[in-house]
C-alpha cells in the first residue's frame, strides 16, 4: 500500500511541470478569448450606437451577450482539446518513457521490492487524478471567466447564465461535467476502464513487441465486445428484453468484468512476460 501511494505520488510529480504548462495555457487562452469575444461584441454594439441606433435596436440586431458566445469560440475550446489530447498521449507515454533512451527507468521500477501491479495501478491512478484535477480546475476557471465577462460587458447587454446553463449549452462540456452523479460515474467509469484496457494493450506490446501489438488490439477488441455484450444481446437476439435499469446493471457488471480481466492480464504480463 505504501509503495502504491509513493509510486502514485512519483508518477504525478513526473508529469507535474507539463501539467502546470497545460493549466497555464488554458488560463491564458481562455482569458484572452473572454476579453477578445466581449470586446468584439461591444465594438459592434458601439459602432451601431454611434451610427444613430438606439440601445434596443442594437440589442435586437446583435442579441444579448452570454457566455455561450465565448464557449463556442475556437480559443476557448482549443486549450480543452489540447489538454484532452495531451492526456490521451500521456496514457501511452507514461509507460513508454520508462523504456526510452539509455536511462532505462523500467529496470528500476521492475526491481522495486513491491508487487509490479502497484506500478500499473499507480500509473492508472495518476492519469485518473490528473483528469479529475483538470476538470476541477476548468470548473474554477469557468466561474472566474464568467465574472470577468460580467466586468467587461455592461448589465444592459448581458444575459447571465449560471455555470450549469453554460455547461449544458455546449456539447462536450456536457460530457465532461454530467449533471447527475450517476452520469458522472458512467462517463468517468468508462474512461477509467478504457485507460486500463489501453494499459493492458501497451503491456502486451512491451512483452511481445510486434506480435504484442496484434495481441493488444485483439485484447482491446474482446474487451469492447464483452463490455457491450448486454446491449448487443438486448438489441439483437433478446429483442429489447431488459428494462433500462436492468441493462444499466448488466453494463456495470460487464464493465467491472473488463476492468478485473484487464488488471488480471496486466498482472500476469508484468510478472511473467514483460521485457525491459
Amino acid at each position: 500500500m505504501m509503495s502504491y501511494l509513493k509510486l502514485t505520488n512519483f508518477e504525478l510529480s513526473r508529469f507535474f511541470k507539463m501539467y502546470l504548462v497545460l493549466i497555464g495555457i488554458t488560463l491564458v487562452m481562455q482569458t484572452l478569448s473572454v476579453v477578445w469575444t466581449a470586446n468584439n461584441y461591444l465594438g459592434e454594439i458601439n459602432e451601431q450606437l454611434s451610427s444613430g441606433s438606439t440601445v434596443e435596436e442594437a440589442i435586437n440586431g446583435w442579441g444579448l451577450f452570454s457566455f455561450d458566445f465565448i464557449t463556442r469560440g475556437f480559443w476557448f475550446s482549443a486549450p480543452i482539446l489540447l489538454c484532452i489530447a495531451s492526456l490521451l498521449i500521456y496514457v501511452f507515454f507514461i509507460w513508454y518513457r520508462d523504456w526510452l533512451g539509455k536511462n532505462t527507468f523500467a529496470y528500476r521500477l521492475f526491481m522495486l521490492p513491491t508487487a509490479r501491479l502497484n506500478v500499473f495501478l499507480a500509473k492508472a491512478t495518476a492519469i485518473f487524478l490528473m483528469v479529475l484535477g483538470l476538470i476541477s480546475i476548468q470548473l474554477v476557471f469557468l466561474t472566474i471567466e464568467n465574472e470577468l465577462m460580467k466586468m467587461i460587458v455592461p448589465n444592459t447587454f448581458r444575459e447571465d447564465l449560471t455555470i450549469n446553463e453554460i455547461i449544458n449549452g455546449f456539447d462536450y462540456l456536457r460530457v465532461l461535467y454530467p449533471v447527475s452523479f450517476i452520469q458522472f460515474f458512467i462517463n468517468y467509469g468508462i474512461g477509467f476502464m478504457a485507460v486500463i484496457v489501453v494499459f493492458t494493450g501497451i503491456l502486451f506490446e512491451r512483452s511481445f513487441r510486434w506480435k504484442g501489438i496484434i495481441l493488444g488490439v485483439l485484447f482491446s477488441g474482446i474487451a469492447l465486445i464483452v463490455f457491450f455484450l448486454p446491449i448487443l444481446l438486448h438489441e439483437t437476439i433478446l429483442n429489447h428484453f431488459f428494462y433500462p435499469t436492468e441493462l444499466f446493471i448488466l453494463m456495470l457488471i460487464s464493465g467491472l468484468i473488463v476492468i478485473a480481466g484487464s488488471i488480471w492480464m496486466s498482472n500476469y504480463l508484468l510478472n511473467k512476460k514483460i521485457r525491459v
Binding site: R14, G101, K102, N103, T104, F105, Y107, R108, M111, L112, P113, T114, A115, R116
Partner: peptide
C-alpha cells in the same frame, strides 16, 4: 519474487534513474 529484490540487485550497464 518481489521480496527477493531486497536480497539481490542488478546494476545494468546504463543508469536506472531519470536523467
Amino acid at each position: 519474487n518481489k521480496d527477493s529484490y531486497e536480497k539481490i540487485t542488478f546494476i545494468p550497464d546504463a543508469i536506472t534513474m531519470l536523467p
